[in-house]
């Protein structure tokens, strides 16, 4: 059974749908438009690459996305290597000198989502956000039909929001002596897709999850 149906969602079929290359079987309708998707997992688990992947076909089709980066460390070269067309990506950094970084982050997310200029808004390490804030953002995403993707090392409060939670977990790597990391055997990881109120947590193994 499709995870969409298990989770109680209808499959979005409009032209704004954002397909995820690695989840085409599980999420044939793509990432939920007008909703929040949370991606969290340990550092270096591959969650960032996982979250960035849908941006490649999106930007190749001329659609725009925004990346809100609180770490100031997102490397555009890595995005380019993933096939993302950088001219369609707006990079936003929350100033490190800000006395109220969380407030600025929240404000920036709201501004970008409400503008309806971007199909996907990816927020990297937003830090602690209250449930009320998440609810506000959920409503903003709904109104603007935006895919709002949060990338965080720890889970965010989300009880009031319809969302997917994707756990991306890394398993111990296989030792290799003589090959580069690019060719190293794929690490095995799993993705957990979860929805509010349905308790239909399913663990799905992603076999080709490289770093």
């Amino acid at each position: 059974m499709l995870l969409h149906k298990q989770a109680g969602f209808t499959t979005p079929s409009n032209s704004r749908a954002i397909a995820h290359p690695r989840l085409q079987d599980q999420l044939p309708g793509g990432l939920p438009v007008g909703s929040i998707t949370l991606v969290h997992g340990a550092r270096s688990s591959g969650k960032t690459s996982f979250a960035l992947e849908p941006l490649a076909p999106l930007t190749q089709a001329g659609r725009q996305a925004a990346v809100i980066d609180t770490t100031h460390a997102i490397n555009p070269v890595a995005l380019h290597n993933l096939g993302i067309v950088l001219r369609h990506i707006l990079f936003l950094r929350v100033p490190s000198s800000s006395k109220r970084p969380h407030k600025h982050t929240l404000w920036a997310i709201q501004q970008v989502v409400v503008s309806q200029v971007f199909d996907v808004v990816l927020v990297v390490e937003p830090g602690p956000l209250s449930q009320a804030s998440m609810r506000q953002l959920q409503l903003a995403a709904e109104r603007s039909e935006t895919v709002l993707l949060f990338l965080n090392s720890t889970p965010l409060p989300h009880r009031n929001a319809i969302h997917y939670t994707i756990h991306y977990e890394v398993n111990p790597t296989v030792h290799s002596d003589d090959i580069s990391p690019i060719l190293a055997p794929p690490r095995r990881a799993s993705i957990q897709i979860q929805s509010r109120g349905h308790h239909s947590t399913k663990r799905h193994r992603i076999a080709e999850a490289g770093a």
Partner: peptide
């Protein structure tokens, strides 16, 4: 209209976050 929205958004973001923090990247 779309361009106007985009321009207004980018300027707003630049004013609060600093124009150096609202950018595009080219390889």
């Amino acid at each position: 209209q779309q361009q106007h929205q985009e321009v207004a958004l980018i300027n707003r973001l630049g004013v609060v976050l600093g124009s150096g923090n609202v950018l595009s990247a080219s390889i």
